[in-house]
Write a protein that binds this DNA or RNA. Structure first.
Length: 577
DNA sequence: CGACGGGACGC
DNA sequence: CGACGGGACGC
């Protein structure tokens, strides 16, 4: 537990020293797994090239590296590749969208997984998909499961929220597990939730039975239920050896398709028995994966022939393959498949046209999902909106407090921070006039800040950030994190706390700032100074002023009775050099 | 008015 | 079955 805590370090200065003292193993690991789950492991045909991968995967995000694995000595491709994305969510989406698809000129569909960290290798023993679906977060003790759910529903359908509670008092211990149905949603939450949640991907639970999930699978027959823990586990019970005797199809479609749309599509071929959308991640894979069963092998084969490669919705090709009881990756299963370079663009024309197929699916059908589908709908849009448009019209601080805007607000915060950093650099280089011409003001939207900022533009001499209404000294270095606290300040922000970068900058300018932080989900916090004088200067300058449109109260903090007497003594006796 | 930084799951 | 290379801040 003690060494684990070190992994959860929450201050960048801790992190640097942590890395610096490390011999190199950690550096190597982070290179491949930073951010977590951002690297794909792909099983593919041996002829698939790096360019094939680039072409089909670059739309999911920023590719940092593509590595098509070859045998060292012979140079012979092994049918395996790695793709490193910049972001966790990019890799997750790429996996969901590309798994099962064919690229290049090789007929074999890709198997796309999130790579394990390098030292774990290919172990697949435990809850393979849970590691991509479950987040572990810190939450204020006052938050209920419902509160947490409301905060996190904006990123996608939530399976469950579970707050860890004291087993006797039932009080929250201040952290929670959140499980999504799709890796990309968990990834979006991981990236987009308020940073005070300190999200990490939860360590999968050792080995929990899935009988609860079985119960919910309901009346649908599930011959493969026994091995659903592992999406790619081979199941030997129902093996069908020869071509033409299958009645079961595995379908991979756009996750947007709902059950009704899939049913109507496959019902065009007579003999449809049932159609099951795997929205339960424990069965096979994720949304967009379905099982379709016909009452005769002929119907199944016909459906595969007609619908495999069909674009539905346009631009999203269906994968339809015989379901050989999880041996679907055997090349033999695709002998007649024409996926690859020239899939039929309109197999549609060979199917008796009915009205049912014509309307493309609506953006996201209501009722297709279990919960919170409404809040999921805007997700794609939010992340695609160029943030600076919002910035110029809105400004970063007020009016974006709603839960729906969380993602946007995060993008905004990131952008504002980037601009702030760029501004500092430009200013440091003495190029303020360039900066002002380019309109690179750090964006305080409020009147006071603007007036001050324009004055600064004229002077072009000292750099006062436009987001603070006070006249500030130039930036100062922080005090070492382990400095003794000379004076601690209590900060109250009205109505909401400014972003951290602004707080750090502003409170840091009086020198000897050890740390400044805001209590999560509150509008107050503390600033710790290693010098009484610095702290008093901060009070004198900042009390009653505005930062990013928030009015600040800054005063000496009352001592913390709880922690002071007990905790400190333990620390001293323990942390002796 | 506005107060304390948190970290692993009842198997 | 399908799991880990090559290059390396610059001229």
């Amino acid at each position: 537990m003690a060494e684990r805590r070190k992994l959860f370090d929450r201050d960048s200065r801790d992190r640097e020293s942590f890395h610096g003292s490390d011999g190199g193993k950690l550096a190597r690991d982070t290179k491949y797994d930073d951010p977590p789950n951002s690297r794909l492991f792909i099983v593919c045909g041996k002829t698939v090239t790096e360019e094939d991968f680039r072409e089909s995967f670059e739309k999911y995000g920023t590719i940092e590296e593509i590595w098509v694995v070859k045998t060292r000595t012979t140079g012979e491709p092994k049918g395996v590749a790695y793709i490193k994305f910049s972001k966790t969510s990019e890799a997750a989406l790429a996996m969901e969208e590309m798994n099962g698809r064919c690229i290049g000129s090789h007929p074999r569909p890709l198997k796309v997984l999130i790579a394990h960290s390098r030292d774990q290798g290919s172990r697949r023993d435990m809850n393979e998909e849970e590691r991509l679906l479950r987040l572990f977060v810190v939450v204020p003790k006052s938050m209920t499961e419902k509160d947490v759910r409301e905060q996190f529903a904006q990123f996608g359908d939530i399976d469950y929220v579970s707050i860890v509670k004291d087993r006797v008092t039932k009080e929250s211990k201040g952290f929670a597990y959140i499980k999504y149905h799709r890796p990309s949603h968990a990834a979006k939450a991981f990236e987009g939730c308020d940073r005070s949640f300190k999200p990490v991907f939860a360590e999968p639970k050792p080995q929990k039975s899935t009988e609860m999930a079985d119960r919910f699978n309901g009346p649908l027959p599930h011959p493969k239920g026994a091995s659903h823990d592992n999406p790619f586990h081979h199941y030997d019970g129902l093996h069908i050896g020869s071509e033409g005797t299958y009645t079961r199809l595995e379908v991979i479609a756009s996750p947007q398709l709902n059950w009704d749309q899939l049913w109507r599509l496959f019902d065009l071929i007579p003999g449809l028995d049932y159609c099951h959308l795997h929205d339960d991640p424990k069965n096979r894979m994720y949304k967009g994966h379905a099982t379709v069963v016909y009452n005769t092998p002929q119907s199944a084969a016909y459906a595969k022939e007609k619908l495999h490669g069909f674009e539905y919705p346009p631009g999203q090709r269906l994968i339809v393959k015989p379901d050989y009881s999880r041996q679907s990756d055997l090349p033999g299963a695709f002998r007649h498949g024409n996926c690859g370079m020239h899939p039929p663009s309109t197999p549609f024309s060979r199917i008796p046209p009915t009205g049912a197929m014509h309307p493309p699916p609506p953006p996201l059908p209501a009722g297709a999902q279990t919960m919170a589908s409404g809040s999921e709908m805007g997700l794609g849009n939010i992340s695609l909106v160029p943030p600076h448009h919002q910035l110029t019209s809105n400004g970063p601080s007020s009016s974006l407090g709603g839960t729906r805007a969380g993602n946007l607000q995060n993008d905004l915060a990131a952008l504002v921070e980037t601009i702030a950093q760029a501004t500092s650099l430009i200013q440091a280089a003495g190029l303020t006039s360039v900066m002002n011409k380019a309109g690179l003001n750090t964006g305080g939207p409020q009147g006071a800040g603007d007036a001050h900022g324009s004055q600064q533009k004229m002077l072009g001499e000292t750099y006062d950030p436009a987001y603070c209404s006070a006249k500030l000294p130039p930036p100062q270095p922080l005090a070492p994190i382990d400095s003794e606290v000379a004076l601690r300040l209590f900060i109250v922000c009205q109505p909401t706390p400014p972003p951290m970068y602004a707080l750090k900058d502003v409170f840091g300018r009086f020198g000897n700032l050890i740390d400044v932080y805001i209590l999560s989900w509150k509008s107050c916090g503390y600033a710790k100074y290693a010098s009484k004088e610095s702290a008093e200067n901060a009070i004198a300058t900042l009390h009653g002023q505005e930062i990013c449109g928030s009015r600040m109260k800054v005063m000496p903090a009352e001592p913390n009775e709880k922690a002071d007497s007990s905790r400190k003594r333990i620390k001293v006796s323990k942390d002796d050099e």
